[in-house]
Amino acid sequence: MVTPQMLKGVLPIVVLWSLADDDAYGYAILRKLRDAGFAGVGDASVYGTLQRHHDAGFVTSYLGDGGQGPARRYYTLTPSGRLALENARHDWHALVRAVSAVVPAAEGQIA
């Protein structure tokens, strides 16, 4: 499982990533992350992360059609958010490579 500590580390990147293709509103992002396997992610984490990205200028928001009920606040990546995502993507791959280099080869045989 993804522990809260690990979740905290990846959430900023994952939230940006979840907006790469389509704008989304807070609860839709939460559901997307849970469906993806981050079962333990909480509403406050996603909402707080969105506010942080908003303060940093990585996302902006607008009121969009919510289908039924009130309008939903959709978040969209700004150019600077896309740049941040691109950088984060490089960091992520560098990290995966670094960790891969440390994982013992024998690990692959444990099953």
Binding site: T3, G9, I13, W92, L95, V96, V103
Partner: peptide, 20 residues
């Protein structure tokens, strides 16, 4: 956050190997 990501990647990779 980056340090935490490191730990996560270890877990993800562990999971990948484990699934094999």
């Amino acid at each position: 956050a980056f340090i935490a990501v490191l730990v996560t990647a270890a877990l993800v990779l562990g999971g990948v190997f484990f699934m094999r």
